[in-house]
């Protein structure tokens, strides 16, 4: 018997991507009875689902962000590689390399396989397990940076740029705007790899998740709250804060701050200049153009479904490589990087 095409059993609904025989959603945007969550960013992990299946780390992140009672009435952990049958659908999670705990959802149904990758990246990241390509019939991908202008440079070079600026302006504070989950911890790790061993002062909004990362076994070195009482720490130091804080009242405690922003969007000058950023750092937790295409090739899927982002360019490029692309137009995804821009609230 011919295996059923995934479009017969995996579909989009207003709540999100739905597996019909398994009767569960992946990263639904509204409360649903049963959800599998790829990772803890707030556009993928929403509160108030019935049963939630995710990695141990993702569940811990969800509890920390939304409270024990809103992270799913029933919470079920599943380790990478461990298989689970849900109404005849075999479900496995594989690392996505995006943030700690991030996973691709591998679904096998009657000999046909679909992989929902969530958000992912291919660069090494000491704070999370690396992406594992899984051959499949349909690969569901993001397309955040799906234009050939997005080629992320080596993050070590970007950190080098930052450290040169710190050396040139030793009396000032470099304050890096970054997302609280994933980016902040990766930046700290990159700094540590480059030999930066000073205590890193953190905005209050970042502290909780950094502590959680440490509890989950990712060591980040000395961290300090960036409070007014700790002012002496700020001179010549690198401070991390949410993007919205780096140019607002909170930043007045810093020493002549140099506002920096770490995001894949920083590759485009106009995007960087709009926010008054003085030092753009092109460091992203998403796949860039080459990595998107390489990944689609590696998983050998004849069909690529695109959840959100710049799907037009990706579909065009995939067609030239003999892969069929299809835009799912899922709403509510992609906000995680939008929050990376300053001025988005106070």
């Amino acid at each position: 018997m011919l295996a059923p095409h995934p479009e017969t059993w995996l579909c989009t609904r207003p709540e999100g991507l739905f597996c019909k025989p398994g009767d569960f959603f992946v990263d639904p945007v509204r409360p649903v009875p049963r959800a599998i969550i790829t990772h803890g960013h707030s556009d993928h992990a929403r509160p108030d689902h019935g049963a939630v299946l995710a990695t141990r780390e993702t569940l811990a992140i969800m509890r920390a962000r939304m409270g024990e009672d809103r992270a799913g009435r029933v919470q079920q952990e599943i380790a990478y590689g461990e298989a689970l049958e849900i109404n005849g659908v075999r479900v496995t999670l594989r690392p996505a390399g995006h943030v700690l705990g991030s996973a691709q959802v591998v679904m096998d149904w009657k000999g046909s396989r679909a992989v929902v990758s969530g958000d992912y990246k291919r660069r090494p990241d000491p704070t999370c397990a690396p992406f594992e390509p899984v051959p499949c019939d349909v690969f569901v991908t993001e397309a955040t940076f799906a234009l050939p202008v997005f080629r992320h440079p080596d993050p070590a070079e970007e950190i080098g740029k930052l450290l040169r600026s710190v050396a040139l302006f030793p009396e000032r504070t470099h304050v890096i705007g970054c997302y609280a989950l994933g980016k902040a911890q990766r930046l700290i790790s990159l700094l540590r790899e480059s030999g930066w061993d000073r205590p890193v002062p953190l905005h209050g909004a970042l502290m909780k998740l950094c502590r959680l990362y440490e509890e989950l076994g990712v060591s980040l070195g000395p961290l300090e709250p960036a409070t007014v009482a700790n002012k002496a720490l700020f001179v010549g130091n690198i401070v991390l804060a949410p993007p919205s804080a780096i140019q607002d009242r909170w930043a007045r405690r810093l020493a002549e701050p140099v506002p920096c922003l770490a995001s894949g969007w920083m590759r485009v000058r106009q995007r960087a200049r709009q926010g008054g950023v003085e030092l753009p750092l092109v460091i992203s937790d998403h796949a860039d153009w080459d990595e998107l295409l390489d990944t689609c090739a590696e998983v050998q899927a004849p069909e690529i479904w695109i959840t959100h982002g710049r799907e037009e360019a990706l579909i065009h490029a995939l067609a030239q490589r003999g892969q069929r692309g299809r835009a799912l137009h899922l709403v509510g995804l992609g906000d995680e990087e939008i929050e990376d821009e300053p001025g988005g609230g106070e």
């Binding site: 234009l147 050939p148 202008v149 485009v268 037009e312 360019a313 065009h316 030239q320």
Partner: peptide, 13 residues
Amino acid sequence: TDPALLALSHDYV
């Protein structure tokens, strides 16, 4: 470069 990708990129940048 591919003309369609160049045009999309130019629009964006």
